[in-house]
């Protein structure tokens, strides 16, 4: 995992220095989306296998990760194609529709996550879990 972070970080820094600034940066944006997806899925599977986190969906972090997954998965293809097609009006319409919708969805889920209060943990069947909502 640290290896992926280091490689992606190094590539993004390299791209930031060398790339022209007059077009949409599809490749770094796509890579960022993929990296976020991989990390988020990895996080969710780690939490799934952790017996201490039974009530996963009562945790704000879970909803933040869900928002990131939905936004990154939904915007991956628009970002990949944006560099070469942003000039086309039809593409721009679809891009805006997908991106803006997912942006709103992401922010709504973020708001929901912020509003969730972390429940105090309690002992349950020999394990520590969050209190049932």
């Amino acid at each position: 995992m640290w290896g992926i972070t280091a490689v992606v970080g190094a590539y993004l820094v390299f791209f930031l220095i060398t790339a022209p600034h007059d077009a949409f940066d599809s490749i770094p944006t796509g890579i960022t989306s993929l990296t976020l997806l991989i990390y988020s899925i990895f996080y969710l599977f780690e939490r799934m296998n952790d017996p201490s986190s039974l009530y996963l969906f009562s945790s704000p972090v879970f909803w933040i990760v869900v928002a990131i997954i939905i936004y990154s998965a939904g915007t991956f293809f628009p970002f990949i194609y944006a560099k070469n097609n942003m000039e086309e009006a039809d593409f721009k319409k679809i891009y805006d529709l997908i991106h803006d919708t997912l942006y709103i969805v992401k922010n709504v889920i973020f708001s929901f996550a912020i509003m969730i209060k972390t429940k105090p943990e309690r002992k349950y069947a020999g394990k520590t879990i969050s209190k049932k909502r």
Partner: peptide
């Protein structure tokens, strides 16, 4: 490009939502 974009996006979203639903049901 645009059908790929639409179907790709829908596929990715379906996968993501499927994954989240799977995790919630598993939990």
């Amino acid at each position: 490009t645009q059908p790929i974009l639409l179907f790709g996006t829908m596929g990715m979203l379906a996968l993501a939502i499927g994954l989240i639903v799977f995790i919630i049901f598993h939990q």
